[in-house]
Design a protein around this nucleic acid. Structure first.
Lengths: 124, 124
DNA sequence: CCTAGTGTTATATTTTACTAGTACACTATA
DNA sequence: TATAGTGTACTAGTAAAATATAACACTAGG
């Protein structure tokens, strides 16, 4: 996995796993890969994985069962709320950045539409 | 100035100064505040300011004159290109993040419109 | 009971960002 | 020429993130 070296890896791992849950790759009640396996997959140290998981436990998104594994919460509302939170944070971030670059509200919307339209022409 | 502790300060300073140029607070050919003054204003060490400025020099956005100060490039095209680059990076980032959160192209646009509309009701 | 698979914790080490402090180099001007 | 204001460079120290490595605790299954 590629990491942005401007942001702590454990933080990016947390976000990666959140995305996996929101997109349904990891389902409510489902089991996460073993910490050592995650470490190998992400080419990262076990402690770094553990740190990411620790924050996810604190947030109540995953639960840990010693000897068994780590599991996504069965409370689907938590996942829904998590998605809403992440979407809102991203919208806010993008808006503020673009606004700070002197773009008006309309220019921001038009800019995004153009970007998507242009991107649509690519084949990926 | 408030800094996001997930991102290096020097990197945030660089972006802050870029924004100042793009919004015209700092004009082409204009003089930047002295490095020691910037350090005080941003409550940051001189070396950290210097690191940010160093990258801006490498990028050709500012030039340094020993004993005089640091100056914004007089080549306005560089500033224009910089703005386009930053806008494009932000659009790309936002799109990819939201797309990864399972939102369709339409949902992304609608979501942004709703966010802006809702935000417009606030008074700031 | 033993073993493989799992989560958890701890120590030591390296790297990067940041800070503090100091000194040096150049410019303008009184 | 002296001085204040500027950029530049260097050394030393601190803190956070990440690594390598090892040990410990629990579970399930033969």
């Amino acid at each position: 996995m590629k990491f942005d070296d401007k942001v702590p890896i454990y933080y990016q791992i947390k976000n990666y796993l959140y995305h996996e849950m929101i997109t349904g790759q990891l389902k409510p009640g489902g089991k996460l890969p073993a910490v050592r396996q995650l470490a190998v997959d992400l080419t990262v140290n076990v402690n770094t994985v553990q740190r990411a998981l620790g924050e996810m436990m604190t947030a109540g998104i995953i639960t840990s069962q010693r000897g068994k594994g780590n599991f996504v919460t069965t409370e689907t509302t938590r996942i829904t709320q998590l998605k809403e939170k992440l979407v809102m944070e991203e919208l806010e971030r993008a808006y503020e950045q673009l606004h700070a670059l002197n773009l008006t509200d309309d220019e921001i919307i038009v800019g995004l539409k153009q970007y998507i339209a242009q991107r649509g022409q690519r084949n990926d």
